[in-house]
Amino acid sequence: MLRTTKVLMLVTDVGFVVYFGVTGLGLIPPEWAFAGYADPVMADWNWSFLAIDLLAGATGLASLLLLRRGSASGSQLMLVSLVLTMASGLMAIAFWTLRGDFSLAWWLPNLYLMIFPLPAIVRLAGPRPVPG
Score class of each variant (00 low, 15 high):
residue 91 M to V: 14
residue 58 A to I: 14
residue 104 L to R: 00
residue 19 Y to A: 13
residue 72 A to R: 13
residue 32 W to P: 01
residue 119 P to K: 02
residue 51 A to W: 14
residue 130 V to F: 01
residue 49 F to P: 05
residue 25 L to V: 10
residue 113 L to S: 07
residue 40 P to A: 06
residue 5 T to R: 00
residue 7 V to C: 08
residue 114 M to D: 07
residue 60 G to D: 01
residue 85 T to H: 03
residue 61 L to R: 03
residue 37 Y to D: 14
residue 87 A to L: 15
residue 33 A to R: 11
residue 103 S to C: 06
residue 87 A to M: 06
residue 40 P to F: 03
residue 48 S to T: 12
residue 127 P to R: 06
residue 3 R to Y: 13
residue 3 R to C: 07
residue 122 V to N: 02
residue 25 L to C: 08
residue 42 M to R: 02
residue 101 D to E: 12
residue 75 S to P: 02
residue 3 R to M: 13
residue 93 I to N: 05
residue 109 P to E: 00
residue 108 L to C: 11
residue 100 G to M: 09
residue 122 V to C: 04
residue 131 P to R: 00
residue 78 M to I: 07
residue 44 D to Q: 10
residue 10 L to D: 08
residue 10 L to M: 15
residue 24 G to M: 07
residue 60 G to F: 00
residue 67 L to C: 12
residue 75 S to G: 11
residue 53 D to L: 09
residue 55 L to T: 15
residue 114 M to P: 05
residue 84 L to I: 08
residue 64 L to P: 03
residue 97 T to M: 08
residue 13 D to N: 14
residue 127 P to W: 00
residue 120 A to D: 05
residue 7 V to D: 06
residue 36 G to K: 00
residue 35 A to K: 11
residue 42 M to E: 11
residue 109 P to N: 04
residue 16 F to E: 01
residue 97 T to K: 03
residue 43 A to I: 09
residue 13 D to A: 12
residue 113 L to T: 02
residue 37 Y to F: 15
residue 70 G to F: 04
residue 98 L to C: 15
residue 100 G to S: 08
residue 127 P to C: 00
residue 11 V to K: 02
residue 15 G to V: 02
residue 21 G to C: 11
residue 86 M to F: 08
residue 62 A to T: 08
residue 130 V to L: 06
residue 76 Q to E: 13
residue 14 V to Q: 03
residue 72 A to H: 11
residue 81 S to Y: 03
residue 113 L to A: 13
residue 70 G to W: 06
residue 10 L to N: 04
residue 43 A to G: 13
residue 100 G to E: 12
residue 97 T to F: 14
residue 27 L to T: 04
residue 111 L to Q: 02
residue 87 A to R: 02
residue 24 G to L: 06
residue 61 L to H: 03
residue 34 F to P: 07
residue 114 M to A: 15
residue 30 P to I: 08
residue 98 L to Q: 15
residue 121 I to D: 04
residue 28 I to G: 04
residue 132 G to K: 01
residue 91 M to I: 13
residue 89 G to Q: 04
residue 33 A to M: 14
residue 31 E to W: 11
residue 85 T to N: 13
residue 38 A to P: 01
residue 104 L to P: 10
residue 34 F to S: 07
residue 8 L to D: 10
residue 83 V to C: 11
residue 7 V to G: 08
residue 109 P to W: 02
residue 53 D to Q: 11
residue 25 L to M: 15
residue 57 G to E: 01
residue 98 L to G: 15
residue 88 S to G: 15
residue 88 S to C: 10
residue 41 V to E: 12
residue 94 A to L: 15
residue 92 A to W: 08
residue 26 G to C: 10
residue 23 T to H: 10
residue 24 G to A: 06
residue 11 V to T: 11
residue 3 R to N: 13
residue 55 L to C: 14
residue 117 P to H: 07
residue 73 S to M: 08
residue 50 L to P: 04
residue 23 T to Y: 12
residue 44 D to R: 06
residue 64 L to E: 05
residue 80 V to I: 14
residue 27 L to S: 06
residue 48 S to H: 13
residue 120 A to T: 09
residue 66 L to V: 10
residue 106 W to K: 02
residue 115 I to S: 12
residue 70 G to R: 04
residue 43 A to Q: 14
residue 21 G to P: 13
residue 72 A to N: 12
residue 7 V to Y: 14
residue 84 L to F: 07
residue 45 W to N: 12
residue 35 A to C: 02
residue 16 F to P: 00
residue 130 V to Y: 00
residue 43 A to F: 13
residue 90 L to D: 09
residue 122 V to P: 01
residue 49 F to R: 01
residue 20 F to G: 04
residue 79 L to K: 04
residue 74 G to W: 01
